[in-house]
């Protein structure tokens, strides 16, 4: 009888452990965290949010693609660079997100762009590492002095007007983007997107 109990104990233990195993590929905590739709309309506050970035980027890309200048850039494999969209509002918001999304969407359509701004330092560091560290074969290093300059520059800004009353807050955003020919300084394309967000208390 005693030996029977000894044999049953591990069997029951393994049975109870197997009951805990779930087929769902998730690891759930107790915080109630869940994934949502990244494309959902977000109205948590009147600040610029994901929906504003997504719709603005989409509008700008669609507008740019219709421009003969941009279609010419694609055809001739011209080069573009982008200065980050400037945040002229009073709130903190990484407006470079708009620049990055527009560039990414343009590249999917065949637009080539060169790096600029903050990313330039990483590029220079890598060129120096390859050419000056003595660690690399001369025949395999990327040569200095071969980077290509862009013919066109994309820039833009976000501005806002905020109005408040006792029971209402109204925020009007205007996002402007431009495509400028670098050599001549001529603005070849510009467009703007307006957003109004209202909070009633």
């Amino acid at each position: 009888m005693k030996s029977c109990r000894i044999l049953l104990a591990p069997a029951l233990l393994s049975l109870s452990l197997s009951a805990c195993v779930t087929t769902s590929p998730t690891t759930e905590g107790s915080g109630g965290v869940s994934y949502g739709d990244s494309n959902a309309v977000e109205t948590v506050t009147t600040d610029l949010g994901s929906t504003d970035i997504q719709t603005t980027s989409e509008t700008m890309t669609q507008s740019l693609l219709q421009t003969p200048v941009l279609q010419d850039i694609i055809r001739k494999r011209g080069l573009l660079m982008a200065s980050p969209v400037e945040n002229k509002t009073s709130e903190y918001f990484d407006t470079k997100l708009i620049t990055d999304t527009v560039l990414s969407q343009l590249q999917k359509n065949g637009v080539r762009y060169v790096i600029a701004g903050d990313e330039m330092q990483n590029q220079v560091d890598e060129l120096r590492r390859q050419n000056q560290s003595g660690l690399y074969k001369k025949s395999s290093t990327a040569k200095v002095g071969n980077m290509q300059g862009a013919q066109y520059r994309l820039d833009g800004s976000v501005s806002s007007i905020i109005k408040k009353a006792a029971n209402i807050k109204d925020v009007y955003y205007k996002i402007n983007m431009r495509l400028i020919e670098i050599e001549s300084g001529v603005v070849e394309w510009s467009d703007e997107k307006e957003i109004r967000k209202t909070l009633r208390r």
Binding site: N39, A40, V41, T51, T55, E58, K108
Partner: peptide, 9 residues
């Protein structure tokens, strides 16, 4: 041929 776009209000 394109990512699911954002819902627009």
């Amino acid at each position: 041929v394109w990512n699911e776009g954002p819902w627009k209000p």
